[in-house]
């Protein structure tokens, strides 16, 4: 497909004009009299993903006919998807607000690890923190008046040490958040949003939805969602040392446009290729990849918090500190499993 978006009834190959319907079925072969006897169009349909599953509007595809079922793979993360989608007063999201696209010269796993890595924040993102240890104010000054996150957040190492991380198998995981509390947020747009949500689901349920439970969720191996700083991220390996990432701002359907536009603007600052936050991560990925080429050292230590994991019966998960590396170990355990299956 040459255009990123558009409308078409047929997909027509530019070379010999073979054309397909939007289901990938071969509809027409120009000059059919040249075809051999026994030529059957049905043999030449476009490739299909062998397995496709959908949950609350998110479509997942597997290019393998084998492996864990959709339910077994995504099931443990459904609550994290709910956490995001339930924030929309109309119970649905729109990923139609454009996208941020960035690339880096590093392995895809560097980005995947990073999504749930809280250990790096005070160091990797030092440039966003002032001398008093306070991260830049993300306050909105936009003409529509949305104020998406409170100012004055403390992001020193000590404030991160109480955050938790969780794993549920399959490489999935998430981090909790103790610094962003939607129940304490207030601005004209956010208050209007809270009223809209409460009007749809009731005040008690709205309060429950806005509880700051999740920060980043990783749906292994290539997708993350951020409920409080609203976006979905898809990670695509291009080569062993080259990765492309797409980040979609989310519009919560039923929320005031001023709140959605505030979120879109916030994401420019946190996750665009020119953002204050993502750029320092990208630099870290590139330097790490260079370091990994070294033949002189053969260690990559991910042992922080080894043995400190504990069961969380309420969430049916394993819990550790967010600044530990339990989540990273879980990712590599899953990865080694997939590599063994494939071998």
């Amino acid at each position: 497909m040459n255009e990123r978006k558009g409308h078409a009834e047929r997909l027509i190959c530019c070379y010999h004009g073979w054309n397909y319907d939007t289901d990938g079925k071969l509809m027409g072969v120009p000059v059919p009299e040249g075809c051999c006897d026994g030529f059957d169009r049905a043999d030449f349909n476009l490739a299909r993903a062998p397995r496709v599953g959908e949950y609350r509007g998110f479509v997942f595809a597997s290019l393998s006919a084998h492996g864990a079922s959709f339910e077994d793979h995504i099931g443990p993360m459904k609550g994290n998807i709910d956490d995001l989608v339930d924030r929309a007063p109309d119970g649905a999201l729109a990923l139609d607000a454009g996208m941020h696209r960035y690339v880096f010269s590093g392995n895809w796993k560097l980005q995947v690890e990073n999504v749930l890595d809280s250990y790096h924040v005070p160091f990797g993102h030092a440039s966003t923190v002032n001398k008093a240890g306070v991260q830049f104010a993300r306050r909105e000054g936009d003409r529509k008046g949305a104020e998406v996150i409170e100012t004055g957040k403390q992001q020193t190492a000590s404030t991160w040490k109480d955050r938790k991380s969780f794993t549920v198998g399959n490489g999935h995981g998430w981090t909790s958040n103790t610094t962003l509390d939607d129940s304490k947020r207030s601005s004209a747009a956010f208050d209007e949003y809270k009223r809209a949500l409460a009007a749809k689901v009731g005040a008690d349920r709205a309060a429950e939805i806005l509880k700051p439970r999740l920060h980043n969720s990783l749906i292994y191996p290539n997708m993350s969602i951020m409920g409080l700083n609203i976006h979905v991220r898809v990670i695509k390996p291009l080569a062993v040392d080259r990765t492309e990432v797409t980040i979609y701002p989310i519009r919560l359907l039923g929320a005031p446009e001023s709140m959605n536009s505030g979120n879109i603007r916030l994401l420019n600052v946190t996750h665009s290729a020119a953002s204050f936050v993502q750029t320092d991560d990208l630099e870290s990925f590139v330097r790490t990849q260079k370091g990994l080429h070294s033949q002189q050292t053969d260690w990559v230590d991910i042992s922080r918090g080894l043995g400190a994991e504990e069961p969380d019966r309420e969430l049916n998960a394993t819990r550790g500190l967010a600044t530990h590396e339990m989540v990273v170990r879980a990712q590599y355990r899953a990865w080694v499993g997939y590599m063994r299956e494939a071998a």
């Binding site: 607000a97 454009g98 996208m99 941020h100 104010a137 306050r139 000054g141 936009d142 529509k144 980040i247 701002p249 446009e257 536009s261 879109i264 603007r265 994401l267 420019n268 600052v269 665009s272 290729a273 020119a274």
Partner: peptide
């Protein structure tokens, strides 16, 4: 406009 779609940069004086 910079309000309905993602932008690479959209800074007011504060940002």
């Amino acid at each position: 406009d910079p309000f309905g779609q993602a932008s690479l940069f959209y800074d007011d004086r504060d940002l």
